[in-house]
Design a protein around this nucleic acid. Structure first.
Lengths: 229, 229
DNA sequence: CATGCTTGGTGTAGCTTTTACACTAAGGCG
DNA sequence: CGCCTTAGTGTAAAAGCTACACCAAGCATG
């Protein structure tokens, strides 16, 4: 029965798995490690939690530092605490996962700052420590959660077409969806507001642009509505 | 940007929410706090994580210490880290939740050891610190999870009747279920093995006793089967 | 300016799943 | 032997899901 006190060398950190969607790929943010061990290897953004810092605050801070990213959605994922997950010292890591709008002009997809880079999630390099496991857990969680909570919208620009939305779900869920059924279902939920506008600068029939109506969503939720795709 | 190093007074603990079902109530294990602050108040079993101790191991240890309980199911719930959640010092707490078979003769429902006691979950006393919030989170998680993973069986004796199972789901989900539809659905999944036996010592028509067939469940899962109630 | 190329946008029929609902069966008890 | 209690069973209507194919609109090209 192990009762060595906590402080004897136990460290607490956060790691953050950030997803974005660019065109038709689910992307993942990684950065090169600066410190030992595994300096120079790719890893998730992360770092120690300050003694007077909230956990989610620490997650946002490490993201701001690594890549200058500010996620539209951020949720605690799981806490990884295997005894030997870090070779230096016992480190317990609270993992978060987040979503960012890559298509937004404000978050240039290709060039995050500070040694960070976006990878297609299914073709990312191996990450240091147990970060591959953390990323895989985040991916499964995203896949599950996107089906019963409308968090997918956080990955699109504010105004989007139904085709963009469908493509997004197809990328995350890794399977094709029927166009008519998808549109029927989404529109029937009455969560999208028609912006009245259409796409510009496309060499084909332009599509209508919709917005996710968060007020209406919250109102419906109170009445027992359940999002599901 | 807060970067005080982790060790400056940051403590890591586990807290465990244990559920059991006795007759027709969902019960919750609590114990009286020994140390300050809030000595003598009811709280969740919990304690500091040893420097060389796994998180789940710590959860099992504190349960063994408080009440002598050994849960049939145990899962990490969430990590609570609000800066002021413990008045003494910054404490980050990894919460777990677990299920025990109260109806089992081996786990006497009424008399756990060591200052611990079972409470009907909806009528438990106020718990110290943020433990009410932790317990509420666990309850929501159990409610969600029981619907798409067959963990409810961990709360019943090994052999059980369909009425017991239905009553269990009604208690956890807090709503009535239709008897015929429930039986149809559960039996159609082909996860229960008829034990061939029936209840004894009941003053009415005795019901068939079933067992949950875990081998078959795992086999079906590999074929893409999804439990759902 | 006509043609073609590309993606947008729409309805229906069959099938599966879910819901609602009420009576007989079996055993112990008095 | 009659009564009490819970066990155990089927069906019909409604809702939801799946599969599937063609015309529309705008731009580009010759």
């Amino acid at each position: 029965m192990s009762t060595r006190p906590t402080d004897e060398g136990l460290a607490l950190s956060v790691e953050v798995v950030v997803f974005g969607v660019d065109d038709s790929d689910l992307k993942l943010l990684a950065r090169r490690r600066e410190g030992e061990p595994f300096a120079g290897r790719w890893a998730l953004p992360g770092g120690l939690v300050g003694g007077d810092e909230a956990l989610e605050g620490a997650a946002r801070r490490v993201l701001a530092e690594a890549g200058g990213v500010s996620p539209a959605y951020l949720e605690q994922l799981y806490t990884f605490g295997a005894i030997d997950r870090d070779p230096r010292r016992r480190t317990v890591s609270v993992a978060y996962y987040g979503l960012v709008r890559l298509a937004d002009p404000r978050a240039p997809a290709s060039a995050p700052e500070g040694g960070a880079a976006w990878f297609v999630a299914s073709a990312a390099p191996r990450l240091a420590l147990d970060h591959d496991e953390i990323a895989a857990t985040a991916r499964r969680r995203l896949q599950a959660k996107v089906r019963y909570e409308p968090i997918g919208f956080e990955l699109l620009p504010r105004k989007f077409t139904l085709s963009q939305l469908q493509a997004l779900y197809e990328v995350i869920l890794e399977r094709a969806l029927d166009k008519r059924n998808f549109r029927k279902k989404i529109l029937a939920m009455d969560l999208l507001a028609d912006s009245g506008k259409v796409e510009a600068d496309v060499a084909r029939r332009p599509a209508r642009l919709y917005r996710f109506d968060e007020r209406r969503y919250r109102r419906l939720c109170k009445q027992g509505f359940n999002f599901e795709v």
